[in-house]
Design a binder for these strands. Structure first.
Length: 431
RNA sequence: GUGGCUGUAGAUCAAUGGUAGAUCACUGGACUGUGACUCCAGGUGUUGCGGGUUCGAGUCCCGUCAGCCACCCCA
């Protein structure tokens, strides 16, 4: 036997079967992903969002300009390589790509207001732990062209509805980060305050004073928190305050609950004004943010487009799937009928019957194994089939068979010729 | 990137430094005639990998890899 090849660190296989079972850390299967993804596909278009797909590979410069060179994501975590002279990176998130596409194809000329959603793998070279992987999947939305706050509220309500539909226990945190008028003076004031207390800060925060002073506010180090407690607070300029107040009153009118969280600062440079984050209240460890987003009114211009405002969120599919799996929820297609032929002539007939059912849109499974009826039924049960049919000599000759409902054990006498209508009738009576 | 914990069968776990086991799951049979209850049979486990100590290592030591937890970061 030659040596096994293992997967790359930080990547996961998502299989249709489970390879282990633990209550607190279940093996996440494809059916859990499907539940999360299908809920999004069904819901997002109701709010006018249409799917957009962009490449995994982008020019490195896009992320350097869009996300910010000093962020950890761009500075330390991107998979970047030389592609015959071009610097390219595997996307660490999707917002910059969608903005690039919006600008590159002059969408603002066709449709100044547009709402897009996306789903796909993202890549960040981080130390992995539960709910944080080097290849992970995000589902997100972006709305271009509306300065809000109504679109902000609509997005937060959409996220709220989606997470509720999935049964995720969470809290919606909300904050305003200010804009180009009120954030720079605040940043300067904060830096001055922190420089005066540099000796009380952790090593990381000492660096942050110059690179990203706002991040000091949510450092978990107790000494840093003490310093943060006395730090000057962001005072929103009048337009930002009006925007934030407006958002809160719309959310209240829409009956969406939220908690104001002045410590909510997002890690990417492009955010302005509204920032929001859905934080799971159970089921995940430290990686408990399941979705996060905000407004980025300067990003389109930064990436070469016009003065187009934008807002969006991204959600972590692995984290959502983990919670969904813990709750035992999934979305799987199970066979309606499992047919167990006992001999060769019966097998040929079983194949025809299955073909007929599938043509009518019913999932049908035929056994390829030679085994006794007892074991065949066991297999039908393991597959989660609703009905099972044992096909032998007797059935072929008489055209009569017993259709067994596995859950209840009830048997329905049917003719093979009339199997499809009989099944359809049973399904109609009790779906 | 930093620190800690853990690696034994598909899974959950045993095994004083002395012959690697149990349970569950899986497959087949008892049963060409109806599963979730029964009985029988079925395992070539590089004890994560590589070194070292020892007469002898799953067990002790070193390294390494992986997973997990926290930090960090973030979805």
């Amino acid at each position: 036997m030659s040596q096994k090849i293992r997967g790359v660190k930080g990547t996961r296989d998502v299989l249709p079967t489970e390879t282990y079972v633990k209550d607190d850390d279940p093996w996440v299967r494809i059916a859990h992903y499907h539940l999360v993804e299908q809920a999004a596909r069904d819901l997002f278009p109701l709010y006018g969002y249409r799917e957009a797909r962009t490449p995994v590979l982008e020019r490195t410069e896009l992320f350097v300009r869009g996300i910010g060179e000093v962020t950890d994501i761009v500075g330390k975590e991107m998979y970047t390589f030389d592609d015959h002279g071009d610097r390219v990176s595997m996307r660490p998130e999707n917002t910059a790509s969608l903005v690039r596409a919006y600008v590159e194809h002059n969408v603002s000329q066709l449709e100044p207001d547009t709402k897009w959603w996306y789903l796909g793998p993202m890549f960040r070279r981080e130390r992995q732990q539960r709910g944080r992987y080097r290849q992970f999947t995000q589902i997100g939305i972006e709305a271009f062209g509306s300065a809000g706050p109504r679109v902000d509220a609509e997005q937060i309500e959409l996220l709220d509805r989606w997470l509720r539909a999935l049964g995720i226990p969470f809290e919606m945190h909300l904050n305003s980060l200010g804009d180009a008028n009120c954030r720079p003076p605040y940043r300067a004031a904060l830096q001055a305050y922190l420089r005066a207390r540099v000796d009380d800060l952790c090593e990381e925060c000492k660096k942050r004073i110059e690179t990203n002073p706002i991040r000091v506010l949510d450092c978990k180090n107790p000494k840093c928190q003490e310093v943060a407690a006395g730090a000057p607070k962001l005072v929103l300029c009048d337009p930002c305050k009006a925007h934030f107040d407006g958002l809160q009153s719309i959310l209240t009118a829409l009956k969406v609950s939220f908690v104001l969280d002045a410590k909510l600062v997002r890690g990417l440079d492009y955010y302005t004004r509204t920032a929001y984050e859905a934080i799971a209240t159970e089921g995940l460890g430290a990686q408990s943010t399941v979705a996060g987003g905000g407004r980025y009114d300067g990003l389109v211009r930064e990436l070469g487009g016009g003065d187009v405002p934008g807002i969006g969120f991204a959600a972590g599919v692995e984290r959502l799937a983990l919670i969904v799996a813990q709750q035992g929820k999934e979305r799987a297609v199970r066979p309606v009928l499992f047919i167990a032929p006992l001999g060769d002539a019966e097998a040929a007939r079983a194949d025809q019957l299955a073909q007929q059912l599938r043509a009518a849109g019913l999932a049908a499974e035929v056994s390829f194994r030679k085994s006794n009826p007892g074991n065949q039924l066991k297999r039908a049960d393991a597959l989660g089939a609703r009905f099972a049919l044992v096909l032998g000599d007797l059935e072929l000759q008489t055209d009569r068979a017993r259709l067994k409902e596995l859950k209840t054990g009830a048997q329905h006498e049917v003719s093979l010729a009339g199997l499809l209508p009989a099944l359809q009738k049973l399904l109609e009576e009790s779906p």
